[in-house]
Amino acid sequence: MSSPIGNQSEAVCIVQLTDSHLYASPDADLLGLDTYASLRAVVDLVLDQVPKIDLVLATGDITQDGDERAYRRFIDTVEPLPAPCYWIPGNHDDASIMARLGTDEGLSEEWVDAGNWRIVLLDSSIPGAVPGHLSGQQLNRLQRAIDSADERFVMVCLHHHPVPIGCDWMDPLGLLNAEDFWSRLQAAERVKLVLWGHIHQELDQQRDGIRLLATPSTCVQFARHSSDFATDTQAPGYRMLRLMPDGHIETRVSRLESGRFLPDPGAVGY
């Protein structure tokens, strides 16, 4: 666990960046969209819009190809953000490379205490597979984090969606053992928020009194409520959260200007 961030009587400002899908080559693109350029543009937008940041969360699919050069490019790109960054793997990532680099660079933690909140960082990736699963080790991490949080409120971060999102093609690619996950949360009154990436779209729901948030990708967007794979023309973006000391959550999604980064409209998968 890292050293606590901020004072427990103050709000915590968090920026979530997710699904940047960088490649070893800075010139590569995903479905016709330059993912490196779009990430840089989103970081510039954060710098313009959020004057004080306490921490940055990168919630998986940092890279598309799992190459170490792509991870180092991500680290260099987010370095101008004036806050520590923590990351978790997604299905396109190489979790072992992320763990090694994350240990060296201070990006990998089991959980982080910030203000009056504990932020739990889970690895839901399955090597070589698209859906997610939380191993017994990860579920035990979650339980330890909840049990030792004392009076802090708890936010849980993972890559894969733990609830259906209304996309026929995407719903089977979420967290396969979601009920194991929810069984740990339902008995924990201090858990207030679950945050994820993976779905390349904005979502804001509630389950059992817990806020559920997902965030647009910094590159390609997926169409909501689609039966088959479909991209969307909405712009890349990020999420800002303010976690208040009384457990209240303020959040908004911000996007780049419309039309600046668009994927190939004929894309049928990636």
Score class of each variant (00 low, 15 high):
Ala214Val: 03
Gly166Ser: 09
Leu185Glu: 08
Ser125Phe: 05
Val130Phe: 10
Pro127Leu: 13
Gln221Thr: 01
Met170Arg: 13
Asp204Gly: 12
Leu175Gly: 06
Val220Leu: 06
Pro162Asp: 12
Ile146Glu: 10
Leu213Glu: 01
Arg207Glu: 13
Phe181Met: 02
Thr233Met: 12
Ala129Phe: 13
Gly166Asn: 05
Asp147Cys: 06
Glu189Leu: 09
Pro131Trp: 10
Arg184Ser: 14
Gln138Arg: 02
Leu121Pro: 01
Ala187Phe: 10
Thr231Ile: 02
Thr218Lys: 05
Leu158His: 01
His198Cys: 00
Pro172Thr: 13
Ala178Phe: 06
Ile210Leu: 11
Trp169Thr: 07
Trp196Ser: 04
Gln138Trp: 04
Leu185Tyr: 04
Lys192Met: 02
Ile119Gln: 02
Ala129Val: 10
His198Lys: 05
Glu179Asn: 12
Pro162Thr: 03
Gly209Asp: 15
His133Asp: 14
Asp228Lys: 08
Asp204Phe: 10
Gln206Ser: 14
Ala223Lys: 08
Pro172Ser: 07
Val194Lys: 07
His160Ser: 12
Ala145Trp: 10
Leu134Arg: 04
Arg141Asn: 07
Arg211Thr: 12
Cys219Pro: 09
Arg211Pro: 09
Phe181Gln: 01
Gly209Met: 15
Leu134Pro: 08
Met170His: 09
Trp182Asn: 08
Asn140Glu: 15
Met170Pro: 04
Ser217Lys: 03
His225Ala: 02
Ser227Thr: 11
Gln137His: 05
Asp150Gln: 13
Leu121His: 09
Cys157Gln: 03
Asp180Gly: 04
Ser124Lys: 02
Arg118Ile: 04
Val163Asp: 14
Trp196Phe: 15
Ala223Gln: 14
Ala214Asn: 09
Leu193Arg: 06
Val130Trp: 11
Val120Trp: 06
Arg184Leu: 15
Asp204Trp: 04
Val156Gln: 11
Leu212Thr: 06
Val120Gln: 03
Val130Ile: 15
Ser148Thr: 15
Met170Gln: 14
Glu202Gln: 08
Phe181Thr: 00
Pro127Phe: 12
Leu134Met: 09
Ile146Phe: 11
Thr231Met: 00
Asp171Cys: 10
Leu195Gly: 04
Ala214Thr: 03
Arg141Asp: 02
Ser217Gln: 01
Ile199Asn: 04
Gly166Asp: 14
Leu213Arg: 05
Gln138Gly: 03
Arg141Cys: 01
Ala178His: 15
Asp123Leu: 12
Val163Cys: 11
Leu175Tyr: 09
Pro172Cys: 14
Phe229Gly: 01
Gln137Asn: 08
Ala129Lys: 13
Ile119Pro: 03
Met155Arg: 00
Val191Lys: 07
Arg211Val: 06
Met170Ala: 15
Asp171Glu: 15
Gln143Ala: 13
Trp182Met: 00
His161Ala: 05
Asp150Ser: 05
Gly166Arg: 09
Glu202Ala: 11
His200Thr: 01
His133Ser: 13
Ile126Pro: 08
Asn140Ile: 07
Ala145Pro: 11
Met170Thr: 05
Val156Met: 11
Ile199Ser: 10
Arg224Val: 15
Ala230Thr: 07
Gly174Thr: 01
Val156Asp: 11
Gln143Tyr: 06
Ala223Tyr: 00
Ser125Asn: 14
Ser227Arg: 12
Leu212Gly: 07
